[in-house]
Design a protein around this nucleic acid. Structure first.
Lengths: 192, 192
DNA sequence: TCATTCATGTAAGCCGTTACATGATTGT
DNA sequence: ACAATCATGTAACGGCTTACATGAATGA
């Protein structure tokens, strides 16, 4: 089972979905460079994946939407030994909208939804050993994630790179560490 | 904008959606007591809301589904001064399935998705002041949440209550505290 | 020879939300 | 007088996912 986070309603007053905003954000992040949907997917997976992981279907749909809204331009590039591709770039209006989104003041806390924790909540109804085993697996998963994030962070320390990007990664690290620490404590309590 | 966490695919091999499993879990949690959809919604909001918050539409649909699958029974209770209601109770098979779900070994880490963090990631493209202001709002939101959770935990400390329920709440507390601490650190770094 | 990369999409379906519908009773 | 509680649902719609479709080039 997979759990993911999705967004409903428009971020800010832009009338765009979160996916569209995120794609806009990526195009802005790349500056004046053009990118294909394929490129953007790779960028997202490599750098944003822990925060937001669009399916390609969604990405391509968002790009089409942005072009239609006049926030990005599409340029077809025929290729000989590769499939033709579409390259996208922000329009001026697109850049404005990104800033509008980023500066929108409404901050909402993300929900603390968790599939494992939902099961855990009902733990009383099941065998204690089974829950302890799952808790150990949970701990290990977050420990793995933690070290993956830390490795990533080692190569991104400012002022080398973008400080916001770096801080966002630090947030991921903070959450993963909190999960590991909590699990360690919970295991001690359950094994008493 | 709202962000929530949803589940795709079936938890374990039960063929049930996460919502259905959760409803099954609630019915089991209540033991031999019967409950109406209305009751379950109230229970969920009061005790599970931070982990999983179904809409009533969803709840009623899940209940119908469970009855059809033979995992719960429905009993109509006519009322004089209130609308009639349906009371639900787990069947034996239902109880088995809950345990099967709860003991299912596949633990997956929840994604670190976050709407605010997604914006924050792209912060370089916007005015620094705006991001700092949002970061402060983020901090305050989680500080509020943290104290709400702590208050809740004060009334739930074991051995008074269910230890799993209590530990799940402690996880919420750990996450909220991690968010506050991270935000404090990030604010210091950005204001340098 | 087989998997991966490049490159873009369509179709179907699940899960979830809000808005709408109804209507007596109880508390402020 | 007004809001909230009790109580259950239907309808419409949004956003996301996976499976399917195509097909050459490159490297192990």
């Amino acid at each position: 089972m997979t759990v993911r986070t999705i967004a409903t309603r428009q971020p800010s007053q832009t009338g765009l979905t979160l996916t569209e905003c995120a794609v806009l954000g990526m195009l802005g992040h790349l500056g004046p460079d053009e990118a294909s949907g394929y490129d953007l997917k790779k960028f997202a997976d490599a750098s944003l994946g822990y925060l937001w992981a669009p399916s390609k279907t969604q990405l391509y749909a968002a790009l089409a939407q942005l072009v239609q809204a006049g926030l990005a331009t599409r340029r077809e590039v025929p290729q000989r030994h590769r499939p033709d591709k579409q390259l996208y770039r922000l329009t001026e209006r697109g850049g404005e909208i990104v800033r509008e989104w980023l500066e929108g003041r409404e901050v909402e806390a993300d929900p603390d939804r968790s599939t494992f924790m939902l099961k855990f909540f009902f733990g009383r109804q099941a065998g204690r050993d089974s829950l302890v085993a799952q808790l150990e697996a949970f701990r290990d998963l977050y420990a793995e994630r933690l070290s993956a994030y830390e490795e990533k962070a080692a190569g991104e320390a400012p002022p080398t790179r973008d400080e916001f990007t770096y801080l966002a990664l630090r947030y991921g690290i903070a959450r993963a560490r909190a999960a590991v620490d909590w699990a360690d404590g919970a295991l001690r309590e359950l094994e008493r």
